[in-house]
Simulated assay, not measured.
Amino acid sequence: MSIALSTSCDIRPDRRRATAARLLAVVLLAGCGTPGVRPSALPPELLARPRQSRAKLNLAGVAAPGSADAQIAAGDLLEVTISSGREGEEHDPVVARVGEAGAVDIPLVGPVAVAGMEATAAEQAISQASIQRGIYVRPHVAVELRSKAVNHVTVLGAVDAPGVHELSRTNCNLVAAIAAAGGLNDEAGTIVEIVRQSSLGARVAASAAAGDSVQLASYQPQPAAARTQRIDLTNSAAAPGCQLGDRDVVVVKPRDKEMVYVAGLVQKPGQFEMPEETELRLLDAIAMAGGLDSPVADEVLVVRNIPGRPNPVPIRCSIAAAKRSGSENLILSPGDAVSVEQTPATVVVDTFRNLFRMTLGVANNASLF
């Protein structure tokens, strides 16, 4: 049996070793005359497992229910104007930021809870608080949302626009972060890692950036401890409503390429990437390898590694049978090694082909004299 491996594609060292191991297994199993199992007789545990499709990614399942951007949230900057209605009164607006507890501190009136309200409801809340506290009798209150508080989220990996993105704090979730980064690209897999920063460290950093505190020039903040959360986008129940915080890092992992290995009597032996959305069968893999190198080649050995089994499983296939019956046209699994084997028939045909080439070559040389 002859086996050749194409070197036209880039193979990482670990994959190169895995490829060599698979091909060695093919050689040993073929050389030992291992009978193997026919594709139509494979037990369920040896069948190719269904492969995960990107079309089944459920981003909606990991999205947190957001709120309207018109709603006031902690960190938002408000402009509040209060007047008593007297003639000639100056109306100087007050610019104040909503605190982490959801209240805005207004001079004379004091703190008023406004988080979750829109501007009209906030005006009523401030008006009622000023009357209840004896500050005004019939105040006229105007509230304007000057700017929304944002989180800075870094999105890396298999997205179209990696980088740091600003997201509204009220709608800062995994789906919004991926959308801000242009969405998943063609290399994206199903795994996303979120590196979450310490909330205390984030508040200290935000406070320093806003100038809300005085620190010595020699002060060096200690890096906050981060924790990593791993999410499978195909299992939305694992992380429902995935909210993100300021300075969180989202890493969309690229999918692992699923490969099959084709060797033996084919035109272009080597390793080939399996199509993402469709199943790959035995005849498809042989076609990807350029087709058969011998017109009478028929016997094929497929070596399959099953998780939990110490030894690979040999599967004996027939090209002729695969053409006749779909059950014999084996569905391949990632990592399968396919070898189109030599038989007495292929040896005879190859011998005659070589003799014909030699005879033709001698005849051509003789015609030159």
Rank of each mutant, 00 (worst) to 15 (best):
A208Y: 03
V150A: 11
A161G: 12
S218L: 13
E193N: 10
V137D: 09
T190H: 11
T154A: 12
N151H: 13
Q124L: 12
S127H: 07
G157F: 00
T190C: 01
I126M: 04
V164P: 08
R169A: 14
Q197F: 06
Q197G: 07
A209E: 12
G182E: 09
V164M: 12
E187R: 15
T190I: 08
K148S: 11
I126S: 05
A142K: 12
S130C: 07
G182A: 10
I178Q: 01
A206W: 07
I135E: 00
T170Q: 11
T170V: 12
G163T: 11
H140A: 15
S218D: 14
Q220P: 05
S218W: 13
A142Y: 14
G189N: 02
I194A: 01
S127L: 09
Q222T: 12
V175D: 02
A181F: 04
D212T: 14
L156G: 04
I135Y: 00
H140N: 15
D160K: 14
V155S: 02
A176L: 01
S130D: 04
G157I: 00
A210V: 10
N173Q: 08
V159A: 04
V204L: 15
I178L: 14
R203P: 09
S198M: 03
H140C: 12
N151I: 02
T154C: 03
S218I: 15
E166T: 14
R138A: 09
A217T: 14
V153Q: 04
V195M: 11
L216N: 14
G183N: 02
R146I: 15
G183K: 05
N185I: 06
G182H: 06
S130E: 05
P162I: 06
V164W: 05
A180I: 09
E166L: 15
A129Q: 02
A206M: 10
S207V: 10
E123W: 04
A206C: 11
G163E: 07
A208P: 00
R138P: 01
L216R: 14
N185Y: 01
S218H: 11
G163F: 08
L145I: 10
L145Q: 07
S213Q: 13
G201D: 07
V214R: 14
G201H: 02
N151M: 11
I191E: 10
L156T: 08
A206H: 13
L156Q: 09
A188W: 00
I194G: 00
V175M: 09
I178H: 00
A158P: 02
D160E: 14
P221K: 09
S198V: 03
D186Y: 05
S127D: 10
A217N: 14
H152D: 13
A181N: 03
C172G: 11
E144T: 15
S127Y: 06
E193M: 13
Q124E: 15
D212C: 10
G157R: 01
S198N: 06
V155Q: 04
V137F: 09
Y219W: 11
V164A: 13
S198K: 01
Q215T: 07
D186A: 03
Y219F: 10
N173Y: 04
G157Q: 00
Q222M: 09
I191V: 08
S213E: 12
A158Y: 00
